[in-house]
Protein backbone atom coordinates (compact mmCIF):
# COMPACT_ATOMS: atom_id res chain seq x y z
CA UNK A 1 0.00 0.00 0.00
CA UNK A 2 3.02 2.24 0.37
CA UNK A 3 5.49 3.43 -2.23
CA UNK A 4 8.77 1.51 -2.44
CA UNK A 5 10.73 4.39 -0.85
CA UNK A 6 8.30 4.47 2.03
CA UNK A 7 8.48 0.70 2.46
CA UNK A 8 12.23 1.08 2.60
CA UNK A 9 11.87 3.80 5.20
CA UNK A 10 9.78 1.45 7.35
CA UNK A 11 12.39 -1.27 6.94
CA UNK A 12 14.97 1.19 8.19
CA UNK A 13 12.76 2.24 11.12
CA UNK A 14 12.42 -1.38 12.18
CA UNK A 15 16.20 -1.64 12.64
CA UNK A 16 16.18 1.15 15.21
CA UNK A 17 14.30 -0.53 18.01
CA UNK A 18 14.51 -3.83 19.84
CA UNK A 19 10.69 -4.07 19.54
CA UNK A 20 8.91 -3.60 16.21
CA UNK A 21 5.96 -1.99 17.97
CA UNK A 22 8.21 0.98 18.72
CA UNK A 23 8.29 1.79 15.02
CA UNK A 24 4.54 2.39 15.05
CA UNK A 25 4.50 6.17 15.51
CA UNK A 26 7.13 6.92 12.86
CA UNK A 27 5.55 4.34 10.53
CA UNK A 28 2.16 6.03 10.89
CA UNK A 29 3.82 9.29 9.88
CA UNK A 30 5.24 7.62 6.80
CA UNK A 31 1.77 6.37 5.90
CA UNK A 32 0.05 9.68 6.56
CA UNK A 33 2.64 11.46 4.41
CA UNK A 34 1.51 9.41 1.46
CA UNK A 35 -2.26 9.48 1.93
CA UNK A 36 -2.91 12.54 4.08
CA UNK A 37 -4.88 10.37 6.45
CA UNK A 38 -4.75 6.85 7.86
CA UNK A 39 -7.64 4.63 6.81
CA UNK A 40 -8.65 1.44 8.63
CA UNK A 41 -7.22 -0.48 5.69
CA UNK A 42 -3.90 1.25 6.13
CA UNK A 43 -4.00 0.62 9.87
CA UNK A 44 -4.59 -3.06 9.27
CA UNK A 45 -1.73 -3.11 6.80
CA UNK A 46 0.67 -1.47 9.25
CA UNK A 47 -0.37 -3.93 11.94
CA UNK A 48 0.66 -6.81 9.70
CA UNK A 49 3.80 -4.96 8.62
CA UNK A 50 4.90 -4.44 12.22
CA UNK A 51 3.66 -7.77 13.54
CA UNK A 52 1.21 -6.23 16.01
CA UNK A 53 -2.56 -6.36 16.28
CA UNK A 54 -4.87 -3.97 14.40
CA UNK A 55 -6.32 -2.94 17.75
CA UNK A 56 -2.88 -1.80 18.92
CA UNK A 57 -2.61 0.41 15.85
CA UNK A 58 -6.08 1.86 16.21
CA UNK A 59 -5.57 2.67 19.88
CA UNK A 60 -2.56 4.75 18.93
CA UNK A 61 -4.09 6.45 15.89
CA UNK A 62 -7.04 7.67 17.93
CA UNK A 63 -4.90 8.80 20.87
CA UNK A 64 -2.53 11.18 19.11
CA UNK A 65 -4.19 14.28 17.78
CA UNK A 66 -1.99 14.69 14.70
CA UNK A 67 -2.96 11.43 13.02
CA UNK A 68 -5.99 11.95 10.82
CA UNK A 69 -8.32 8.99 10.93
CA UNK A 70 -10.55 10.65 8.35
CA UNK A 71 -9.65 12.56 5.21
CA UNK A 72 -8.59 16.20 5.54
CA UNK A 73 -7.89 18.86 2.94
CA UNK A 74 -4.67 18.91 0.96
CA UNK A 75 -3.52 21.68 3.27
CA UNK A 76 -4.44 21.22 6.89
CA UNK A 77 -4.27 24.67 8.47
CA UNK A 78 -3.74 24.15 12.16
CA UNK A 79 -4.08 27.34 14.12
CA UNK A 80 -2.74 27.37 17.65
CA UNK A 81 -5.21 29.01 20.02
CA UNK A 82 -3.73 28.23 23.42
CA UNK A 83 -3.26 31.07 25.89
CA UNK A 84 0.02 32.59 24.61
CA UNK A 85 -1.32 32.67 21.05
CA UNK A 86 -4.73 33.83 22.25
CA UNK A 87 -3.10 36.79 23.98
CA UNK A 88 -1.56 37.75 20.63
CA UNK A 89 -4.75 37.49 18.62
CA UNK A 90 -5.00 33.87 17.40
CA UNK A 91 -8.79 34.01 17.61
CA UNK A 92 -8.75 36.75 14.98
CA UNK A 93 -6.54 34.62 12.73
CA UNK A 94 -8.73 31.54 12.90
CA UNK A 95 -11.86 33.67 12.58
CA UNK A 96 -10.40 35.32 9.50
CA UNK A 97 -9.58 31.95 7.96
CA UNK A 98 -13.04 30.62 8.66
CA UNK A 99 -14.63 33.66 7.06
CA UNK A 100 -12.31 33.73 4.09
CA UNK A 101 -12.64 30.02 3.35
CA UNK A 102 -16.28 29.96 4.41
CA UNK A 103 -15.89 26.88 6.59
CA UNK A 104 -15.98 26.17 10.31
CA UNK A 105 -13.33 24.58 12.48
CA UNK A 106 -12.71 20.98 11.56
CA UNK A 107 -14.32 21.45 8.16
CA UNK A 108 -12.83 21.17 4.69
CA UNK A 109 -13.41 23.48 1.73
CA UNK A 110 -15.49 22.11 -1.12
CA UNK A 111 -12.48 21.91 -3.43
CA UNK A 112 -10.73 19.68 -0.89
CA UNK A 113 -7.83 22.11 -0.57
CA UNK A 114 -8.11 23.41 2.98
CA UNK A 115 -9.12 22.14 6.38
CA UNK A 116 -9.06 24.56 9.30
CA UNK A 117 -8.47 23.23 12.80
CA UNK A 118 -7.97 24.78 16.18
CA UNK A 119 -5.01 23.08 17.82
CA UNK A 120 -3.25 23.32 21.13
CA UNK A 121 0.14 24.90 21.86
CA UNK A 122 2.62 24.25 19.08
CA UNK A 123 5.64 25.69 20.90
CA UNK A 124 5.83 28.90 18.94
CA UNK A 125 4.59 31.23 21.65
CA UNK A 126 7.20 33.94 21.05
CA UNK A 127 6.16 34.28 17.43
CA UNK A 128 2.40 34.21 17.96
CA UNK A 129 -0.08 34.11 16.37
CA UNK A 130 0.91 31.25 14.16
CA UNK A 131 -0.29 28.21 12.28
CA UNK A 132 1.12 25.02 10.84
CA UNK A 133 0.31 23.69 7.39
CA UNK A 134 0.29 19.88 7.53
CA UNK A 135 3.63 19.09 9.18
CA UNK A 136 5.58 21.89 7.53
CA UNK A 137 7.66 24.57 9.16
CA UNK A 138 5.44 27.01 11.03
CA UNK A 139 3.99 30.22 9.61
CA UNK A 140 4.57 32.69 12.38
CA UNK A 141 3.79 36.27 13.46
CA UNK A 142 0.63 36.10 11.38
CA UNK A 143 -1.37 39.08 10.19
CA UNK A 144 -4.34 39.04 7.85
CA UNK A 145 -2.01 40.04 5.02
CA UNK A 146 0.27 37.12 5.76
CA UNK A 147 -2.70 34.75 5.89
CA UNK A 148 -3.84 36.03 2.48
CA UNK A 149 -0.35 35.57 1.05
CA UNK A 150 -0.15 32.08 2.50
CA UNK A 151 -3.47 30.99 1.01
CA UNK A 152 -2.42 32.42 -2.38
CA UNK A 153 0.87 30.59 -2.23
CA UNK A 154 -0.80 27.28 -1.35
CA UNK A 155 -3.39 27.70 -4.11
CA UNK A 156 -0.66 28.40 -6.64
CA UNK A 157 1.30 25.42 -5.38
CA UNK A 158 -1.74 23.15 -5.65
CA UNK A 159 -2.49 24.38 -9.17
CA UNK A 160 1.11 23.78 -10.22
CA UNK A 161 1.07 20.26 -8.78
CA UNK A 162 -2.29 19.61 -10.39
CA UNK A 163 -1.05 20.61 -13.84
CA UNK A 164 2.02 18.45 -13.38
CA UNK A 165 -0.19 15.47 -13.09
Amino acid sequence: MLTPEREKKIDELLTRYPSSRSALLPALWVAQEQYGWISLELQRYLAIRLGITPEQVREVVTFYSMYNDRPVGKYHLQVCCTTPCMLMGSDDVIGYLEKKLDIGRGQTTGDGLFTVSQVECLGSCGTAPMLQVNREKYDENLTTEKVDALLDRLRTQAAAEGSNG
Partner: peptide, 19 residues
Amino acid sequence: VGALAKLNRGSHETIGTFD
Protein backbone atom coordinates in the same frame (compact mmCIF):
# COMPACT_ATOMS: atom_id res chain seq x y z
CA VAL B 1 -7.20 -12.19 22.29
CA GLY B 2 -6.80 -8.41 22.49
CA ALA B 3 -9.97 -7.63 20.58
CA LEU B 4 -11.02 -4.71 22.77
CA ALA B 5 -9.28 -1.38 22.41
CA LYS B 6 -9.16 1.95 24.17
CA LEU B 7 -10.17 4.52 21.62
CA ASN B 8 -9.76 8.30 21.53
CA ARG B 9 -8.32 10.38 24.30
CA GLY B 10 -9.32 12.16 27.48
CA SER B 11 -13.01 12.84 27.95
CA HIS B 12 -13.71 11.40 24.49
CA GLU B 13 -12.22 8.06 25.42
CA THR B 14 -14.34 4.95 24.88
CA ILE B 15 -13.97 1.22 24.88
CA GLY B 16 -14.26 -0.13 21.39
CA THR B 17 -12.94 -2.45 18.76
CA PHE B 18 -10.82 -2.03 15.66
CA ASP B 19 -13.65 -1.49 13.22
